[in-house]
Design a protein around this nucleic acid. Structure first.
Length: 1003
RNA sequence: GCCGGAGUGGCGGAAUGGCAGACGCGGCGGAUUCAAAAUCCGCUGCCCGCAAGGGCAUGAGGGUUCGAGUCCCUCCUCCGGUACCA
């Protein structure tokens, strides 16, 4: 090596790569090479098409970048650089999702302010990212912790606070409109019927005149419509972390972060009324260019199901109900057609009926049964989800002693309590149809409840599931099923069939197909007022409060009566108080950490920034001590990049419209100049604004759903132009690493294994044979690769090339350091193709080879097409093939090399920039036009055609490009090998696929 | 259980229904070198054969087709998501 450096100073080594890379990185920063132009900028060119390409917001951890991060970043960088060569105005920003638990936990341990830790982590991340040469417009960088940013995060929350969802118009509107309509008497005054925070009795009230209502009632009504609201929620309180967690942050009853136990506790929390948007969030998935898997996951998360809501009266003929108990049970069912088969009902342990029962000890039948009920309810309410899941699927429950009346049959049916019914879905109560629902069947069997068949399955199902001893004819099977459905094996029948056993005084469904029966029952229910058609969603409202310090404060205060009042937009941001002690109050009773900052919490309306028209300036107020969850900052960051320094708006209108409104591919004629700032229309434009959004599939539901939700609120209120934020989404695959696996599938760290002979691995300590496998990189497996080390050994260009060359971008792939030399050798070969390693002088051949020129055109076309479809590993393979051929064929001309360097530049931008400069250019290669491809160069004059006989290749012929089928057939039959195989007999059939293949079938 | 996705040489992987294994790693042989590294050239799916050539091969089994890694059906394995959602 030392000798090389002396004799070959211009050899492409890691040292030279480092010199080249750092030189150009400085130059790019100095020249602001990758600055994106906004409308209104002096050098903005309205004729350029725009391209907005976004990487998912990183959370800068103290550990710095790992090799997984650059996978997506390199891919987007390649596309962005390619688009610049194609003449696009490219927006490619980067910033920091920087509020969150790790910095706070570090603060708890060390007392260092989270802001200090976070800034340090950001600096590390930025330095590491810049060393990769990514073409970000660093002018637009910001972090969610910047007051200039979270000011607008708070502002958006206030916009939601001041908005309500108008079902009739299917969009959000200002809350002032609602109040005006109430006051004018043009809208019925009532509590929002969809408000999850209110009991049915509250929602049943109607009010006459707005002006006659007291302030408290008005507040109750208005607050029930807001898109954010306070609700007493049973939350997942984690005593150890000192915070409540969203459902999705709890896995198997433990915190996703840290794995601490989680208790269920009631707490007043800010909620987002995301359920108001359930249907639009579902519908609008259709127009998005997203991975099908992700759209499916969102669909399932939203979980739309159609059915009916039915009221079952509670039987009072044999005694009175306890005070406070509802007189009817409302249920949701997707199978109203099976109502005649509802032989019992189940309520969740948390159901209000259960509360009423338990507070009246004497009203629920025999004392021992009552005590069993009380014990059961207490046990299941306190049980964390982990236990509910850990137990087998065995169904448990207890009778309430009460009965309901089946409105279709008129029968008295028992009401049970069982924890297989969840309070959070539907109404927390079901009509149980054990013949046609597996869960109901299992519970009926365990509790000795009756089963009645009401849907006759198709004959083939009956035949396949018939028990022994039933005559083997369809009629016998049908009769048997109608009488005893439980006797049929292999699970109950839950599909569509024909209704039986379903005739009552009011309505009869017998003989109807399932779909028709549903329609008939619903019509009957609606006619009689017993029920209605109903669409239900699995999606729940979004718990938006956290009891943390390191998050955005809510711009809201409480007066002495406990009523909430907004901080005025002009007083934003509400900043965090300084604290000296970040220790969470570790307690089984939920307490937010900010409550410790008593001076900050207890203040006046004036200090808190509440508008005098809302509260008198001297009014004593208490600040909200919860903070927003980590998701908040990432819900709209893609908008702030468009106009990051704007102090008047969260994003400037022109910038927003320019970057977010994107022509549909079909609506944009090639080469057509886009109209800058044209308004969004569904016919001409794509639903979403970001042209390409790349990030991991771990965010498939939460982040992407929340961001869509915020975007739709902003869209409804007229603040953004498009209904969706991200038009095209792509998930890069996980980068794994090698690890070893014992026969019981447990993993062994790589340094605890010895390779005895090639391919035979043994755990050193035990001598047990282990197999090589791949696993997520982790500290415990000691298989983490540090990007800094790789860059030191090979340079950033090689690193980028290697990560892209591993395989398909979307696939999960193993990192294998041994393979890096391949891309490194390629770059050396590329370099040596023109550069004299001794002197650094460029040398070229004078006359181009016609074949190589043709190959170059092909390579340019292939690389471009491959980048477009994000097939970057095959694009690199095409480059390698070209360079290998150029070396083999004795070199390349200066003109060819210049074009080649441009094609290299998206992948290895530093080497390309260096060679570009050495080729005599004084401006950056970044916007050099992509080489043109001559279509004529993509075709050969003579085509080699394989000849198959019975699908096997037996020879090949050369034919001129335009040869027709008859001519090809003649040439094929003249082929000696073919003649030999045919043995003089004429072929039975000859299939000629011009330009591809010939297949013949011998006679 | 349900919903996605994937199974191709020793390894990563390529292949609009048309020559399976491009390209890279590794391996083998050679050139260069005092030697090594680097570089360059050749070979490299498995089996039979001196060769020409032939046979077998894309997780397993069926099917559609002149032709299937690719399309359809059944099954197996792995990865991801989800789970009493009425």
């Amino acid at each position: 090596m030392a000798d090389d450096a002396a004799t070959l100073p211009q050899r492409y080594t890691a040292q030279l790569a480092d010199r080249i890379e750092t030189t150009w990185q400085s130059a790019w920063a100095r020249e602001q090479t990758f600055r994106a132009r906004n409308p209104g900028d002096a050098d903005f060119d309205p004729r350029q098409p725009k391209f907005y390409c976004l990487d998912m917001f990183p959370y800068p951890s103290g550990a710095g970048l790992h090799v997984g991060h650059p996978v997506g970043y390199t891919a987007t960088d390649i596309i962005c650089r390619y688009r610049r060569h194609q003449g696009y105005n490219v927006l490619h920003p980067m910033g920091w999702d920087a509020f969150g638990l790790p910095a706070e936990q570090y603060a708890i341990q060390t007392g260092v302010h989270p802001a200090v830790t976070t800034r340090r982590a950001i600096d590390t991340f930025r330095r590491q990212l810049q060393r990769f040469g990514f073409s970000y417009d660093w002018q637009r960088e910001f972090g969610t912790i910047d007051p200039g940013y979270y000011r607008w995060t708070q502002w958006i929350w206030l916009e939601a606070y001041h908005a309500w969802y108008d079902r009739a118009r299917d969009r959000a509107r200002p809350i002032a409109d609602l109040e005006a309509e109430f006051r004018a008497g043009t809208r019925e005054i009532r509590v929002n019927p969809d408000a999850a925070e209110h009991a049915p009795a509250v929602k049943a009230q109607r009010f006459d005149r707005w002006d006659d209502l007291d302030a408290g009632t008005r507040r109750l009504v208005i607050d029930s419509w807001r898109l954010v609201y306070l609700a007493e929620q049973t939350v997942n309180w984690c005593p150890k972390l000192g915070t409540a967690l969203a459902n999705e942050e709890v896995i198997d009853g433990r915190s996703e972060r840290g794995g601490h136990p989680v208790l269920r506790k009631p707490l007043r929390q800010w909620m987002y009324r995301i359920t108001a948007y359930a249907d639009r969030l579902l519908r609008d998935l259709e127009g998005l260019d997203w991975p099908e898997s992700t759209r499916t996951m969102q669909r399932e998360w939203i979980g739309r199901s159609e059915g009916a809501e039915i009221d079952f009266a509670i039987d009072t003929s044999r005694g009175t109900l306890p005070a406070g108990a509802p007189d009817r049970l409302r249920v949701f069912t997707t199978r109203p057609d099976t109502i005649f088969g509802a032989t019992y009902m189940v309520v969740a342990p948390e159901h209000p009926l259960v509360d009423a029962l338990l507070s009246h000890a004497d009203s629920a039948g025999a004392p021992p049964a009552f005590e069993r009920l009380r014990a059961y309810v207490t046990r299941s309410r306190n049980r964390a989800d982990v236990d509910r899941i850990a137990e087998t699927k065995e169904k448990t429950g207890e009778p309430t002693g009460l009965f309901a009346l089946n409105p279709a049959t008129g029968e008295r049916i028992p009401i049970q309590v069982a924890d297989y019914v969840l309070m959070g879905y539907g109404h927390g109560a079901i009509m149980a149809v054990p013949a046609h629902d597996q869960r109901d069947f299992d519970f009926a069997m365990a509790s000795g409840l009756p089963v009645r068949a009401v849907v006759l399955p198709p004959d083939d199902w009956l035949a396949a599931h018939a028990p022994a001893g039933v005559a083997a004819d369809a009629a016998s099977r049908r009769d048997r099923f109608a009488a005893d459905p439980g006797a049929f094996g292999g699970g109950i029948f839950a599909g569509d069939g024909t209704v039986i056993n379903s005739a009552g005084a009011d309505v009869s469904l017998n003989g109807l197909a399932t779909a028709d029966a549903k329609a008939q029952v619903i019509a009957w229910l609606e006619r009689t007022g017993l029920g209605t058609r109903r669409v239900n969603y699995r999606l729940r409202d979004w718990l938006f409060s956290r009891q943390r310090y390191w998050g955005e404060p809510f711009p809201v205060v409480f007066d002495e009566a406990g009523d909430h009042h907004p901080v005025s937009p002009g007083a934003l941001p509400v900043t965090l108080p300084e604290m000296t002690d970040y220790q969470p109050v570790e307690s089984d009773e939920p307490l937010p950490l900010l409550g410790k900052a008593t001076e900050w919490v207890h203040t006046t309306a004036r200090h808190a920034g509440v508008d005098p028209s809302v509260l008198p300036p001297d009014a004593k107020v208490r600040r909200e001590t919860n903070t927003m969850p980590g998701w908040a900052g990432s819900c709209w960051y893609y908008l702030r990049y468009l106009d990051p320094a704007n102090g008047d708006r969260f994003v400037g209108r022109d910038a927003e419209r320019y970057w977010m409104v994107s022509r549909r591919r079909s609506a944009a004629a090639p080469g057509e100049a886009p109209a800058v700032g044209e308004p969004w229309s569904p016919d001409r434009h794509h639903a979403g604004g970001v042209d390409l959004y790349v990030g991991g599939s771990e965010h498939a539901v939460l982040h992407l759903l929340y961001a869509r939700f915020w975007h739709k609120i902003l869209f409804d209120l007229g603040h953004v132009s498009t209904p969706e934020p991200f038009g095209r989404l792509f998930h890069q695959g996980l980068l794994t690493s090698f690890a070893y696996q014992r026969s019981d599938r447990s993993l062994v760290a790589i340094d605890a294994v010895t390779e005895h002979e090639p391919g035979v691995f043994v755990e050193t300590a035990t001598g047990e044979r282990v197999t090589q496998t791949t696993a997520k990189m982790s500290k415990s497996l000691r298989n983490i690769v540090n990007p800094d080390d790789i860059i030191r050994g090979y340079g950033a260009d090689t690193f980028r090339l290697y990560e892209m060359y591993l395989g398909p971008l979307e696939a999960s792939k193993p990192w294998n350091t041994q393979d890096i030399v391949g891309p490194f050798r390629f770059l050396q070969r590329f370099w040596r193709l023109a550069v004299d390693e001794r002197t650094g002088a460029l040398s070229f051949r004078d006359e181009p080879s016609a074949d190589l020129e043709r190959l170059l055109h092909r390579t340019v076309a292939r690389v471009g097409a491959d980048i477009d479809r994000l097939s970057l590993h095959t694009a690199i393979a095409a480059l390698i093939e070209f360079v290998n051929e150029a070396v083999r064929s004795g070199g390349i001309t200066r003109d060819q090399y210049q074009r080649l360097v441009i094609v290299l530049s998206p992948f290895a931008p530093h080497m390309a920039e260096e060679l570009w400069a050495r080729l005599g250019h004084s401006t950056s290669i970044a916007r050099a036009p992509w080489p043109t491809v001559d279509p004529a160069m993509l075709e050969d004059a003579v085509i080699e055609l394989p000849i198959q006989v019975l699908g096997r290749v037996r020879g090949r012929i050369e034919v001129p490009k335009g040869a027709d089928a008859a001519e090809i057939e003649r040439l094929v039959l003249a082929h000696p090998r073919v003649a030999e195989i045919l043995d003089g007999k004429p072929p039975r059939k000859v299939i000629v696929v011009p330009g591809r293949i010939v297949n013949l079938i011998p006679g």
